[in-house]
């Protein structure tokens, strides 16, 4: 299958690659870019384990073609920490035991990262709704909600890296 040249910025780094047009973004990130944080948990676009941030939006990268990202700014979980300092959402998940097997975590973190920019002071109910595109099998969500609220608080009070 013939390939198309695609260029985008991933975690601040410009990249250029030739890909088949049918290549899903999640495979492009995982297999071509070796950014294996984003995961694949389904093929019906429900689980959100592949969530990344594209041009200021949370996107399920299993439901997006790499060639659609031409010229885009893509952020993945690997780009969250800044010079070794964890982002508030990462710190929140750690502090509140918001992860167990860690498989949903990168998608959860990327969603929380965007959600808290869209809604910096959410209620618990708003967190649950705001994170509803992301499935988790281990935590029962309760500590994830706490983690997101923890991060919201930290971002509001500027106590950790953002």
């Amino acid at each position: 299958m013939s390939k198309t040249l695609v260029s985008m910025t991933i975690n601040g780094r410009p990249v250029e690659e030739a890909v088949e047009p049918r290549t899903l973004l999640v495979h492009f990130l995982r297999e071509k870019m070796h950014l294996t944080g984003a995961h694949i948990g389904c093929e019906t676009s429900h689980c959100g384990a592949c969530t990344v941030d594209i041009d200021g939006q949370s996107v399920k990268s299993c439901t997006h073609l790499a060639v659609q990202c031409e010229g885009s700014e893509v952020k993945t979980v690997e780009g969250l920490a800044n010079a070794g300092v964890l982002h508030a959402v990462q710190q929140g998940f750690y502090q509140e035991h918001g992860l167990q097997c860690g498989f949903c975590t990168p998608g959860m973190l990327m969603r929380a990262y965007r959600f808290l920019q869209d809604n910096p002071t959410p209620s618990e109910e708003e967190v649950r709704i705001g994170m509803a595109g992301n499935l988790c099998r281990c935590t029962g969500y309760q500590n994830i909600v706490k983690a997101v609220l923890h991060a919201a608080d930290a971002l509001q009070h500027n106590t950790v890296g953002a």
Partner: peptide, 21 residues
């Protein structure tokens, strides 16, 4: 105590089977 596993998982540095190349 907080988990020793978390550091790698929250930074996308876990090593699951499909990450292996």
């Amino acid at each position: 105590r907080l988990r020793k596993e978390d550091a790698r998982f929250i930074q996308g540095k876990g090593n699951y089977v499909d990450d292996i190349k």
